[in-house]
Design a protein around this nucleic acid. Sequence first.
DNA 1: GGGCACATGTAAATCGTTACATGATTTC
DNA 2: GAAATCATGTAACGATTTACATGTGCCC
Lengths: 178, 178
Amino acid sequence: MKTETKWIILGILTTGCQTGYEIKNLMDASFQHFWKMSYGQIYPALKVLVEEGYATQSVVRTEGAPEKKQYTITLTGRRMLHRWLETPIHDTSVVKNELLVKLFFGTEMTRHQAVAHLEEQAELLQAKLDVYEQIEANICNNDESEFWMYTLNYGKEIAQAELLWCQKTKGEIKCKSE
Amino acid sequence: MKTETKWIILGILTTGCQTGYEIKNLMDASFQHFWKMSYGQIYPALKVLVEEGYATQSVVRTEGAPEKKQYTITLTGRRMLHRWLETPIHDTSVVKNELLVKLFFGTEMTRHQAVAHLEEQAELLQAKLDVYEQIEANICNNDESEFWMYTLNYGKEIAQAELLWCQKTKGEIKCKSE
DNA sequence: GGGCACATGTAAATCGTTACATGATTTC
DNA sequence: GAAATCATGTAACGATTTACATGTGCCC
């Protein structure tokens, strides 16, 4: 079990999410632009956290609802989380950018093709930006959302920069073909 | 074998690199900011490419140098590469940003800690930018480097945007603590 | 002789995704 | 009664990293 996965799940337990399902929802809603996880990672990680004493599990049976397993972070768990949060960030960045890879091999395609890729990417980025704007419009800017806002800002600003680069590069590629 | 890995190796074969070792070197020198690969992927991929008829292998024995295996892309290989280059880019982005994750859990650390992370990151970004500048200064701007330059520009502009965000966020975090 | 650059490769372990299995309740 | 949402989980597969094994030739 990669340690980061475990600590991130543990961290999410401090945000009000208590079940695997809720964790996955939070991931998809607020986290997906900087980290992704599947059920195949979440449920086993929760199990491990309980085994190690960093979280406790309780089964909740509500009438008129499916049974669910609530997880709560323990004191030891919180201490370990803080320890992880304090440690310096090592470059985990597993970057895979297919657009840049294909563009790198630009001499093997037509300029028209390269431009088409950039245009498609620009559209996707614009859509991403629109989503971010919508999210921002829908949250009340309270104390609890402070740190989330920083990560959202990151997403917005990087997408913006990517969009600008797309436009600029498109222009340069067209320019050179004349 | 993930198809992308194979096509990327095949693409690199068109850039003048002919051995696994050279491919790895190119990767580390020009590619590392948007895709990474280890020998454990490169050598098996080369083997597969030969098996599928997309590349040929020849063993070269030079006096006073270790034996090496040169790979050359075949006509079929080039045709398949072009086909891959033409296909639309699907979002492969496997983003893992530990800084954003830790910042997301900002309420679980001191503001001082959060700022420290941002400062450390800013330094790393500045170092990255310096490396990019140096690379740019050392290459002659000929036709062959055109597409590589675009990917380098991407790296520079995104790093720049990240740096700005670091600075801005640092300010906001400090501001709120007073 | 030590260290470095060149050069190739694999096995094991780890990590992560996908697809599947299951089943309750609610809404249309 | 169909579809959507809530809810949990795993097995198989695929991808990737890490560590190891091996050897040459050159320079100090």
